[in-house]
Design a protein around this nucleic acid. Structure first.
Lengths: 338, 338
DNA sequence: CATGTCTATGCACACGCGTTCAGATACCCG
DNA sequence: CGGGTATCTGAACGCGTGTGCATAGACATG
């Protein structure tokens, strides 16, 4: 102790409850009680403790408190790729919603990381209150490992069928079907589709929705190309489409690619929306920017984030409850490109 | 108590080192050593312990480890407003850079929160390795409180002069000056400016840069309007400007507002760039999207984030080192609107 | 006065881990 | 065989809390 001080006199120790107790002339228990709602403590003494705490800059160490077996109030959010605009917007809302209920989100970005699995392993060393998965190609083994650790998992954007994992997912197929129907009603007949990378269920479900609407009208898609959910990828995919076929309707698996496609069409002198309709999916904030003004299927972000937090709260309240899948309804947003 | 146990008899305890020790038939110390690099432990025994740990799904509890006085590996990032595109992009890079060095960022979004101060107070209960401030109007009292807790603070986008706070900041004035010079060289003379909200030093520094370049050419700005750093705000501000004066050059305090201004100009039938040059600031990813293709001042995000992490590492290595201000150089990105 | 209820307080334990310390075992050299 | 060294091991402590438990006093009720 004395020796410690000599060795590293400057390595500042955090102010502890004992320090406050000494300063206020009370026992350490009293300090703890002064910060605990509903604990018996003389009001005058409580004031004295809080004054001393304020003076010393004391606040109860959340790590030590979390060790007690209670909640840590830490929640991890694993994001498939934060450079994706829709994912970022969802994460933004999630962070806000979690902050509002005093949960503190730790972010892990799969997009910027070489060894996602290792990172997840490190973060799982913290006794998390929950893990939120946002899209991305997370190794399902990790999700299973979490349930083994008895950490609630909530998956968003991709349904994981597991008895202990809750899911939030929008009605991709219905949304896309409605978009295709809109264009059919407008008289469009030569449909193209720009898909996302293979393995993303949202992309294929959206494609299915379009195909189904076309089939009901006795049509089939003229051409399909694959993009990578980015603007540049959408632009490139659209150029390939335009080479292959003359279209009058183009549905895209997400808004970013639709924006790219819009750029490709304009560069080629195609009149949108007179000669070609382009419809995206998600309704990211940029879709309503001037110069873009994209007609799209709204995948309502606020509702989405709120639902995730709602499921989280329900799961924390009853860890044994059966797993749940919440479906979010989409709706068309008519702007200038259909 | 007993009642609790009856209500949730299954409240699963986390697997602990003792559990692994029992399973492997060794002491708890041995388990700890099995996970500690450079500790004496019979190799055969270490293998046995790790096998048992893998089987039980054990991993050392980071909370308990952090209590030891070492680092917690938790870093808080306070973001002024995550709905701001530039801030989100910086945060994205920061998250990636921190993940890469095994630091786990806790996000707090000032934009989505009613009581920022309270939220910060709660997060400061964790023994953070550091606090990163990203723009925003954080109460300086909180930053001071952090230094009181001996938590390193790194401010980005706004220089806080405090002996224990490191800063990263781009050369706003020089960047804006160069942009103005570009347009002067092109023969522009009637300059307008769309500023950010009052109190943002970056906005005023950028305005100063423009004013200085104009002064050197014997000119003064024709009109200045104030926006709120959003696309919509930029659009509205530009409309007010166009009402007031006929301009041939328009500089904006950030890209988002420049994109809004671009929309306003086009809606009014103004030919950009032939009749009007518009230049933004930041070079967010959308600036290069088709249909936008904005000429702007690049505020290099990667370098920015790397610098923050570099300062963080230096501060952790030597907590007593004098505070530092790292200035980031900007450069012009010539696209289609100048 | 006897008994019971309510409030207030300090002690001591538990949380899960890293690490120090003292002791034990194995090995080599003289 | 004795003594020194290197390797291994378990018991024990401390990190900073929250909280159960026992005790003590204040007060009301019978």
């Amino acid at each position: 102790m004395d020796q410690d001080k000599l060795i590293s006199p400057k390595r500042h120790r955090r102010v502890t409850a004992q320090d406050v107790a000494d300063a206020a002339g009370v026992s350490r228990s009293a300090v703890s009680r002064a910060f605990t709602e509903g604990a018996y403590l003389d009001e005058e003494k409580r004031q004295r403790v809080r004054a001393a705490a304020l003076d010393l800059g004391y606040r109860p160490n959340a790590l030590a408190a979390g060790l007690q077996g209670g909640r840590s109030h830490l929640v991890a959010i694993f994001v498939g790729d934060m450079r994706n605009a829709y994912d970022t917007e969802v994460v933004t809302r999630l962070v806000g919603a979690l902050n509002a209920i005093q949960k503190w989100p730790i972010l892990i970005d799969g997009g910027g990381l070489s060894s996602v699995k290792e990172a997840m392993g490190e973060v799982l060393r913290y006794p998390l209150d929950a893990l939120i998965l946002r899209s991305g190609s997370m190794d399902p083994a990790i999700a299973r490992e979490c349930t083994k650790l008895h950490i609630p998992v909530i998956s968003s954007g991709r349904v994981l069928y597991h008895p202990q994992i809750d899911n939030v997912c929008c009605r991709n197929q219905e949304g896309s079907q409605a978009a295709a129907q809109l264009l059919l009603d407008r008289g469009r007949v030569r449909f193209g589709y720009i898909a996302g990378p293979a393995g993303y269920s949202s992309s294929s479900a959206r494609q299915d929705g379009m195909t189904r609407a076309l089939a009901a009208a006795g049509l089939t898609p003229v051409a399909v190309e694959q993009g990578d959910f980015t603007v540049e990828g959408g632009l490139a995919a659209a150029e390939r489409l335009f080479e292959r076929a003359r279209l009058d309707a183009l549905l895209c698996a997400n808004d970013a690619m639709a924006i790219g496609a819009l750029g490709a069409a304009r560069a080629r002198g195609i009149d949108v929306p007179n000669d070609l309709s382009i419809v995206g999916f998600d309704d990211i904030s940029m879709a309503r920017w001037p110069g873009i003004n994209l007609t799209t299927v709204c995948n309502p972000i606020d509702i989405y984030a709120d639902k995730v937090v709602e499921l989280l709260a329900a799961r924390l309240a009853d860890p044994e409850k059966p797993s749940d899948v919440a479906y979010i309804d989409t709706h068309l947003v008519l702007r200038g490109t259909h």
